[in-house]
Amino acid sequence: QRQVAHRVALLPQSPRAPEAVTVAGLVRYGRHPHQGLLRQWSREDERAVRDALAATGTTELAGERLDRLSGGQRQRCWLAMVLAQHTPVVLLDEPTSALDLGHVVDVLELVRKVAASGRTVIMVLHDLASAARYADTLIAMKDGRVVAQGPPKEIVDEALVKELYDLEADILRAPGDACPVVVPRAHG
């Protein structure tokens, strides 16, 4: 498990933290795979925590209790913990679930920065609009099978929406970057 934790960081859909943990305490958990009998907390660990807090905009929250933060703040703190783990691969399961639109954008912009830094990010999203906006490569699945894969601009169309959701929709192109925008059609 320790070897895997050096290569892959995972943020599950509904993570659980110990009661009354502070933000800094949570982010420090990301460094546990790097600890051992012969390797205790180091300056490198402290730097990784500090950098992860800064990258997620949560430095000012470091002393706050996680359970007293908003959903968007908590999600950025969980992402900081994953970033502190310093793995080349990051797995995120629904990192935007239960967040309002503003926080969704904040989290997905942060994920884009993580990917731009050279890490591989694999993310599960049920929101096709967000996936189309933020993914480099989209893998659309239904009933455990891949139904389409490729750049969102190439694969997101009316037929894909129909296959995935049994929903009629129009696909518009966003001004500026032509990102696909899914607009469900009204029934009747």
Rank of each mutant, 00 (worst) to 15 (best):
Q75W: 10
D127G: 06
D93M: 02
E44Q: 15
R39E: 14
V89M: 05
L101W: 12
I122M: 12
R2P: 00
T87G: 13
A9S: 14
T96Q: 07
E158C: 13
H32C: 07
L11M: 13
V23F: 15
A174E: 15
G63Q: 08
A135S: 10
V183T: 03
E44R: 09
Q75A: 13
L38E: 03
R76M: 12
G102C: 03
L79M: 10
L110I: 05
H32F: 12
R50K: 13
P152D: 09
T96G: 09
V114C: 11
R2S: 00
E60F: 12
K153Q: 15
G72F: 06
Y134F: 15
M81D: 01
A98Q: 05
L125I: 06
V27S: 05
R119P: 01
L101E: 08
V181I: 14
E154W: 00
L172I: 06
E168Y: 14
D177L: 02
M123S: 14
I122G: 01
Q35E: 14
D157V: 02
R65P: 07
V181A: 01
I122R: 00
A174F: 04
A159W: 08
A174Y: 06
R119F: 11
R43P: 11
V8H: 03
E158N: 11
Q13D: 08
D127K: 04
G63T: 07
G57C: 07
P180V: 05
R185V: 13
A98N: 14
V181M: 10
H187Q: 09
S70T: 15
A135N: 06
I171V: 10
A48S: 10
A54E: 14
V27I: 13
Q75V: 06
R145E: 07
Q75M: 12
E60W: 03
R47N: 10
E46V: 00
A169Y: 07
L138A: 01
D45Q: 04
L128F: 13
A55P: 11
A24H: 09
P175R: 12
D157E: 08
A129F: 02
D106R: 12
Q149E: 12
R185H: 10
Q13L: 08
A115Y: 06
E109F: 02
K162T: 10
G176S: 14
D100W: 05
L10N: 01
L10E: 03
T58F: 04
Q40I: 07
A52P: 14
V105G: 03
L164W: 09
K142G: 04
V161S: 05
G71M: 05
V183N: 01
L26H: 03
A80E: 04
P33H: 04
E168A: 15
D51F: 06
A17I: 00
W41M: 05
V147N: 03
A62R: 13
D45R: 05
L37I: 02
P12V: 01
E44D: 15
L10C: 12
S70A: 10
V147T: 07
D170C: 07
V161Q: 01
L172A: 14
A159P: 00
V114E: 06
I122P: 00
R68E: 10
R28H: 08
